[in-house]
Amino acid sequence: MSRRISQPAAASPRGRCRASAVAALASAAAVVALSGCSLAYEEDICSGGEYPVISVGGTGSACVPDGEQPPKGYTRYPEGKVPQQVDDEWDVYWRTHTLDTEGNIIDAPEAG
C-alpha cells in the first residue's frame, strides 16, 4: 500500500493580489495619518495673474490684473501683509483693520 503525501495547495493568485491591495491601502492610510498631512482645500484670494487690493477706509477688497493700478478708492496691501488664501492670517486680520488715505493701518469702522 502506498501512501500519498499531500502538499498544501499553493495560494491562489487572486488571494495574493487581494492581500497585497489591502496591505497597500493600510500602508497609505498610515502614512497620511502619521505625516499630519492635511487634505484641506485652500481657496486663493485672487486668480492667477491678479493681485488683491483693499478699499481705503473700509474692509472691502478686490482683485486687479497684474500690471494694472488699483481702481479709485482702493490701494495695495502693505508689503508682507497681503492675504493669499481665504481665512489665512492676513485675510482674517484685514477683516478688522484697514488703511487710511495716508497708508496707515487703522481699526476698521464698525459695520452699521
Rank of each mutant, 00 (worst) to 15 (best):
G58A: 12
I54Q: 08
Y51D: 11
Y74E: 12
P83L: 11
V82W: 02
D87H: 06
H97V: 01
E79R: 14
V64R: 13
P52V: 04
W94A: 08
Y74H: 12
G60W: 04
A62Y: 06
G60P: 01
Y74A: 11
P78T: 06
V92N: 03
D87I: 00
V86P: 01
W94L: 08
S55C: 05
R76K: 15
V56Q: 11
V56W: 11
A62E: 11
V53M: 09
Y51T: 13
V64L: 13
E50H: 13
W90I: 04
E68S: 15
V86N: 11
T96L: 03
H97F: 08
P83E: 11
S61F: 14
T59Q: 13
T96I: 05
K72C: 00
W90L: 05
V56P: 10
G67I: 08
T98L: 09
Q69E: 15
Q84K: 15
V53D: 08
V86S: 13
T96V: 09
D87Q: 03
G80V: 03
E50A: 05
D87L: 05
Y77S: 07
K81Y: 04
Q69P: 10
G58N: 08
G73P: 07
C63G: 03
G80D: 09
Y51M: 12
P83R: 11
V53F: 07
V56H: 10
Q69T: 13
S55D: 06
G60N: 15
S61A: 14
G57V: 02
E79V: 12
G60S: 15
I54P: 05
V56D: 09
G73N: 09
E68Q: 15
P70A: 00
C63V: 07
Y51N: 13
P71D: 02
G73K: 01
Y74I: 10
D91A: 09
W94T: 05
G67A: 10
P78F: 03
H97G: 07
V56A: 10
T59I: 15
T75P: 02
G60H: 10
G80L: 06
W94V: 04
E68G: 02
P70G: 01
V64M: 13
P65K: 02
W90H: 12
G58C: 00
P70M: 00
T96S: 15
G57Q: 03
T96Q: 10
Y74L: 13
G73S: 04
P70E: 00
G58M: 01
P65I: 00
E79N: 12
P52Q: 06
E50Y: 14
Q85S: 10
T98Q: 10
S61R: 15
D88L: 02
G73M: 01
Y93M: 03
D66Q: 07
E68D: 15
R95K: 14
D66R: 07
K72L: 05
V53K: 06
E68W: 08
Q69G: 10
D66E: 14
V56K: 10
Q85I: 03
G58T: 00
D66M: 09
E68R: 13
E89W: 01
E68C: 07
V64F: 14
P65W: 00
E79L: 11
V86L: 15
R76P: 03
G57A: 04
E89K: 11
